[in-house]
Each structure stands twice: as structure tokens, then as C-alpha cells.
């Protein structure tokens, strides 16, 4: 176990140490003390490493990571896990705006709420939020899955591509071209797997969720609309 105390040690030294880890087989553990809301903690890590951060973090924590398993013992600022490619980011508190933005893979698990634009332009990441999500979440989300135990704010899934959104609570409003869709067996199965990954399988009924997805009408030119141009 390597411990970094950001009260006395430099954030760049921490990130440099994480970047030096070999791509495979390191199986190391890092503990970060006194993160004090610093930005860009543990970004761009590509190693088999367990990172525990002992409090609230600022912007972009765990951004662009591969493989790493990061636990944040507190709230996360804007863009937690933005563009993450694989691995796990577990936020024990709330996440601010744009959580998991453009994420390409891995799992972003948020115990509390996420605010606006959660999963904006996501490209393959899975996001599970145990609380509510804010407005414009899933905006232009391309692929991947987002699961929300609570409520979704205005304009959910606006201009959505092929990401699948599962929301248990009420949705304030749906964005352009986002519609509620039928839950088929394959969807129940994938939702069950996601709940399992989030440690909630068997505690929550997959039947309580509604699936939202693209109506696939937004980007197709339709001859009936020719007069509008």
C-alpha cells in the first residue's frame, strides 16, 4: 500500500507515481489522504491498481482511466470519470455535473445524486446512480447503459443515439427524440447484471424501471419536412 497525503505531498507527484505503474500485473494499492477538493486526482491511470481517495475531490477525478479501480470516500466535482475507458470509479457521495461525460467503458457507480448532464455523450461506459440525476442527462449519449434509481431532471436523453437509459423514478421531461420503450427479457437481463455490478442485485426489482431510448427519427431526413428548409 502506497499512501500519498495531499496536505503535504504534491498532486503531480501522486499522478506521476500512478502513471509509472506497469500496464499489467502491478496489482497495487494506493491511498490518497486529504484530497481537499483538488482537481484531476488520479487521471489518465492505465494500470491494475486499487486507489482509495479519503474525501471529497474536485474536477475530473479518474478521468481517462483504464483498468484502475477508484473509490472516492466523499463527493466528486464536475466531470468525475470523464472519458474513462475501463475499470471502476465508485463515488460514495454525490457527483457534480457531467459525471462520466464521453466515457467509453468501465463502470461509474455513484451512491448519491449526480447533477446536470450526467452521462453526456457517453460512448460505452456504464453509469449507475443510486440517487437522482439532473437536467440534460444522457444528452447525445451514443452507447453504453445508464441506470438511475431515483428521478431524472428535465430533457432526459435529448438527441440520444443508441445508449440505453433505465430510470426507476419519475422523469421531469424527455428530450428531443427520447422515448420510453418496452422492457424485453434482454433488457431485464442486462439491467440485472448492472444491478449486480452495483451490489444491488436481488434488492431492487428490475420490473420497477422504465427503459428510455432513441426514437430514431431525429437525424433522418423525411420528405414531409422538405417545406421546412
Amino acid at each position: 500500500m502506497t499512501t500519498f497525503d495531499l496536505e503535504t505531498q504534491d498532486l503531480r507527484a501522486l499522478n506521476a507515481a500512478l502513471h509509472k505503474l506497469p500496464l499489467a500485473g502491478s496489482n497495487q494499492a494506493f491511498r490518497v489522504l486529504n484530497p481537499n477538493g483538488e482537481h484531476s486526482i488520479a487521471v489518465g491511470v492505465d494500470a491494475d491498481v486499487e486507489i482509495t481517495i479519503d474525501g471529497p475531490v474536485g474536477y475530473f477525478c479518474g478521468g481517462m482511466c483504464r483498468q484502475a479501480r477508484i473509490t472516492i470516500e466523499g463527493n466528486a466535482g464536475q466531470g468525475v470519470g470523464e472519458n474513462m475507458e475501463s475499470g471502476l470509479i465508485h463515488v460514495k457521495g454525490d457527483a457534480s455535473q457531467s459525471a462520466g461525460a464521453t466515457g467509453r467503458g468501465g463502470l461509474l457507480l455513484i451512491e448519491g445524486n449526480a447533477s446536470a448532464r450526467c452521462g453526456i455523450s457517453m460512448k460505452g461506459v456504464d453509469i449507475v446512480v443510486k440517487g437522482d440525476i439532473g437536467h440534460l442527462s444522457g444528452f447525445m449519449a451514443q452507447t453504453g447503459r445508464m441506470v438511475v434509481f431515483g428521478e431524472a431532471g428535465e430533457s432526459l436523453g435529448d438527441s440520444l443515439y443508441e445508449a440505453r437509459l433505465y430510470v426507476r423514478g419519475p422523469v421531469t421531461s424527455l428530450g428531443a427524440d427520447c422515448i420510453a420503450k418496452e422492457m424485453r427479457d434482454e433488457h431485464r437481463a442486462e439491467l440485472y447484471d448492472l444491478l449486480k455490478a452495483a451490489g444491488e442485485a436481488g434488492k431492487i426489482d428490475v420490473g420497477d424501471f422504465t427503459r428510455y431510448g432513441s426514437a430514431r427519427t431525429l437525424y433522418n431526413f423525411h420528405v414531409d419536412n422538405a417545406g421546412a428548409y
Partner: peptide, 22 residues
């Protein structure tokens, strides 16, 4: 504007911290 700015306040570790809604 940022959580970092609050870290010097007394009792911040046990404060109720939230993001004001739009």
C-alpha cells in the same frame, strides 16, 4: 464556485454539502 474553496471552513468535514439546483 468549487468545493476546494470551502475546505478551510470550520467543521466542513461534517457540513451538509450540496449543489444548488438550477
Amino acid at each position: 464556485s468549487e468545493y476546494k474553496s470551502l475546505t478551510g471552513l470550520p467543521g466542513i468535514k461534517t457540513a451538509r454539502v450540496w449543489e444548488p439546483k438550477p
